[in-house]
Design a binder for these strands. Structure first.
Lengths: 147, 147
DNA sequence: ATCTCTGCAAACCATTTGCAGCTCT
DNA sequence: AGAGCTGCAAATGGTTTGCAGAGAT
């Protein structure tokens, strides 16, 4: 799915729920998928205000809530007190490696994880809906402050 | 490690850091390891007050912070707005299955997960410190409100 | 025209902090 | 005695909500 497809799907979902498309929502959604990173509300608001200076926090929060409900965004807590969101382009989920020293975040995806988790959940009588897997680790970057 | 061992280790760690053992801290720590579940601050405070009615929120928060720093407790966010903590009896980590319908939380441990994650992290140049794995799924309990 | 949205400010709520007095070593 | 700790209440900070006016269908 491209950004355009997502915007269209987002509009469709809004309509299906009797909700409305607005300039602010579109601005926020476009920026969210353009930046495509683990963004905080503050960061997203700052970017959105470069397009529409009068956008407020509430609108960003409300729009992100819609995106999460519709499955286009995932909220994450990486331990720095604020919620971060990352876009969901496809149905496949990715996981995260977070460097405990430099806080760098790396996304990865490995099909073996999906199948192993499905198996483990099944053994406990569960059917997987979604997962949250974060591996906290020290990276080997030469510019990581740890080394 | 038994609860007694942990209390002793906790005292030792306190001493090492020039901190003090107090009745309140002991009360909180004992209850925390006795209940042994994913407890919220409110729940822990309520229990602690049955022993020492004048214990305040701040003391519970401060004690949990100590436990987390010392590796005896892990903070978790399961999506209901508050932080929950679970005790760390051993060095082995467990993971969680959370029913998206009835919110039941099941702990599990599977050595295959540890080795797979170690391998995946290594492939990206990371060395695992700890992980957070939550599988959101629907359970097959007959009393789960979903069915 | 109607019903939803927006922006603002106030409200909320979990968590943290300042302080005076108390407790541990 | 001296340093850290407690309980209280106030402060903080991220997130949510009420409301009057603006915008979408």
């Amino acid at each position: 799915m491209t950004k355009q497809d997502i915007l269209a799907a987002f509009h469709k979902q809004l309509q299906a729920g009797g909700l409305k498309s607005t300039r602010q929502r579109d601005t926020i959604v476009e920026i969210f998928f353009e930046l495509d990173k683990h963004i905080s509300v503050d960061e997203l608001l700052a970017e959105a205000r470069q397009v529409s200076p009068r956008i407020g926090y509430a609108t960003v929060y409300r729009t992100l809530k819609l995106l999460v409900e519709q499955g286009f965004a995932n909220p994450r807590h990486f331990g720095d007190g604020q919620t971060r969101y990352d876009p969901q382009f496809e149905q496949g989920q990715h996981d995260h490696l977070i460097c405990t020293d430099c806080r760098r975040i790396v996304e990865f995806e490995d099909p073996r994880i999906v199948s192993l988790l499905g198996e483990v959940a099944g053994a406990h009588g569960f059917e997987v809906t979604r997962r949250r897997l974060e591996i906290y680790a020290s990276c080997t970057d030469t510019d990581c402050p740890h080394r």
